[in-house]
Computed example of a mutant assay.
Amino acid sequence: MVIALIVSSASLIAIILLLLLLWIYQTRYSKSRNKSFQTSDSVKGLVLGPILGKFNSMKMSASKGSVTLFDYKALEAGTGNFQEQNILGVGGFGCVYKACLDDNFQVAVKRLDCCGQDAEREFENEVNLLVKIQHPNIISLLGYCIHEETKFLVYELMQNGSLETQLHGPTHGSALSWHMRMRIALDVARGLEYLHEHCNPPVIHRDLKSSNILLDTNFNAKLSDFGLAIIDGTQNKSNIKLSGTLGYVAPEYLLDGKLTDKSDVYAFGVVLLELLLGKKPVEKLAPAQCQSIVTWAMPQLTDRSKLPNIVDPAIKDTMDLKHLYQVAAVAVLCVQPEPSYRPLITDVLHSLIPLVPVELGGTLRVPQPTPPMSPTSLPAP
């Protein structure tokens, strides 16, 4: 018995020593692994992890991907210390800059200078949503950075800027043909359909407008700026602070605070009118008087004799009139004052697909112009 006790005690001590050695090894390995991560290329960054206690909810390293934590010095150098010449646009809480990182990798950097609750909430909301969303018509969030009181969001760079700049900027829509405008509308509808029908739970964008529709090198459109987006069904929408942009906000949300996916459909209808007419959502008539594009256009959209005369001059007489009437009819339905009269975005999507050429992502087959006959091919008299 004494021998058995000695043997069992020795075995127990050996097991304890072995476990202790394994624990020491694991601790040292873990520390060295973390150190190697921290000293790796700061531009490539770290897989999304805990940064500040209040942002622990952002740890969800997304089933479809992950987000990078960028080093502030890399963003500072890539934007030339945030020079004015690198500004791509100006938003409610700061500017968006063009940045060139290592290996000539170009990105867009949104700088959030405000440190109020609204800016904090929008920053966290955008990261939480975009880390889980991957769709060809929704902007890709590459990463983020927090430096003192300033926060940064890093996105893929969209070379052709916003739809607002293309339509209402120096070129006044001259770069956008009729078919390209219909493809942009189709892209936006596809992005919204993904949010409304394929996200679980559904997402309401809440700030759809031409400045939040970005265009890549080939004028493919992507939805951006999800700071105001909400997840449908998880919040009491009647208590949500009224937000949005004048001209795009649906009347029931503006007057009664009622928010549904049909609110996004209304904003889509306004964007469709911008594409069709080349006008801003709200035009100033006098120093203290404005008129919305919906109010101005509605009586003429349903009049086939007047409609061709109000089309954007940049595309006037370049489309099949039958298609023009169809698009106008879709826009009229989308901006109906009563939400129940508006179509679902899926119905809008299916109505636009036949109006977009096959090579641009639709089903329309555009007949090729017949080349003129050469004299040698003419029949003999």
Rank of each mutant, 00 (worst) to 15 (best):
I240G: 09
L272N: 05
E274L: 06
V294H: 03
K280C: 06
S238H: 12
I231H: 01
T260M: 07
G247E: 00
E283Q: 13
G233S: 07
V249A: 09
Y253Q: 03
M298D: 04
D264K: 07
D261T: 13
L307H: 04
V249E: 04
T245L: 07
K306S: 11
L275Q: 03
P299S: 07
A297Q: 08
V249C: 08
G269F: 00
S305D: 14
L259N: 10
A288Q: 12
A297L: 03
S243I: 08
K237F: 08
D232E: 15
N239Y: 02
Q300Y: 11
Y248M: 06
P287R: 10
L307V: 06
P287T: 10
A288T: 10
A267H: 07
N239D: 10
A229R: 06
G247T: 03
P299V: 06
S238Q: 10
Y253P: 12
K237S: 15
L272F: 09
T234A: 10
I231W: 01
E283R: 05
K237G: 15
S263P: 13
V249K: 02
M298C: 09
W296S: 11
I293K: 04
F268V: 01
M298G: 00
L301Y: 04
L276K: 05
I231L: 14
D264L: 09
Y266S: 04
A286K: 15
Y253F: 14
D256F: 11
P281H: 03
N239I: 12
L273H: 04
L275M: 06
I230C: 08
A267T: 04
M298Y: 12
L275K: 02
P299I: 09
Y253H: 13
Y253C: 04
